[in-house]
């Protein structure tokens, strides 16, 4: 079952003297449960593609659908609401709310969704246990290591029960041990809970563990490799 599908997707930036085509007629389908890495050199368009898939940017032409919803036609307000309920984000530099504890950071998105306190407590505790941070629940981000912060970020991304999680170079700031721990945890979530992950990455360790690797160059998909 496809979760993300793009058709003839283009994004052209016309801010400079010469228009720049960041995404060039991309057709892509990502199914539920995939563990996909989008790779490519700098300027290949992977960031722009992920921004459009995540509803943070709009395509110049073509269509982007998440489930049955066409994102290109939505207003800013509708997109915010859509992201809240359908997409989990993990950012390169963790981007947790520094004044909230790990528990509160994870709970925050569910508060925005207006979930009940009981439901919030249950899910937040289960997620933090799953990412191995139950004993760090009351710690604020600055009291956690980079790897631990990124795990909180994953827990936060999953708290809203999204259709898929978009992760922007999630291991870029992590050491090897933290990277392996994080990837193992995400793979486990992918396998056991059928969570769909889509990464943009340069990291060979991530690419090695991905089940599908899409390579972009000059905004075009030049290879799409599926692994068993």
């Amino acid at each position: 079952m496809s979760i993300i599908s793009t058709k003839d997707l283009c994004k052209v930036y016309e801010e400079g003297a010469v228009p720049v085509t960041a995404v060039d007629h991309v057709d892509l389908v990502i199914d539920k449960g995939e563990f996909t890495a989008i790779v490519g050199p700098s300027g290949s368009g992977k960031t722009t593609l992920l921004n459009i898939i995540g509803g943070l940017d709009r395509p110049t032409s073509g269509s982007i659908r998440v489930g049955d919803t066409e994102l290109g036609q939505m207003s800013d307000g509708e997109l915010i609401d859509f992201r809240l309920h359908n997409i989990g984000f993990v950012f390169q530099s963790y981007n947790l709310i520094p004044v909230l504890t790990a528990e509160e950071n994870t709970e925050f998105i569910m508060l925005l969704q207006k979930k009940s306190k009981v439901e919030r407590n249950e899910r937040v505790h289960a997620l933090l246990e799953e990412v191995g941070l139950k004993d760090k629940m009351k710690n604020r981000p600055m009291e956690l290591s980079g790897g631990q912060q990124q795990r909180v970020a994953v827990a936060r991304a999953l708290a809203s029960k999204p259709q898929f999680v978009l992760a922007d170079e999630p291991t870029a700031n992590l050491d090897s041990k933290s990277t392996n721990n994080l990837l193992d945890m995400m793979l486990l979530l992918n396998k056991e809970e059928d969570v769909t992950f889509v990464f943009s990455t340069h990291d060979q360790r991530v690419i090695d563990k991905a089940r599908r690797v899409i390579t972009l160059e000059d905004g075009k998909i030049i290879s799409d490799e599926k692994r068993d």
Partner: peptide
């Protein structure tokens, strides 16, 4: 800026 951008990205409305 980055933090506020993140809040908007994950679904915090402009009103909030």
């Amino acid at each position: 800026v980055r933090e506020i951008g993140m809040l908007m990205a994950i679904g915090m409305t402009k009103m909030r």
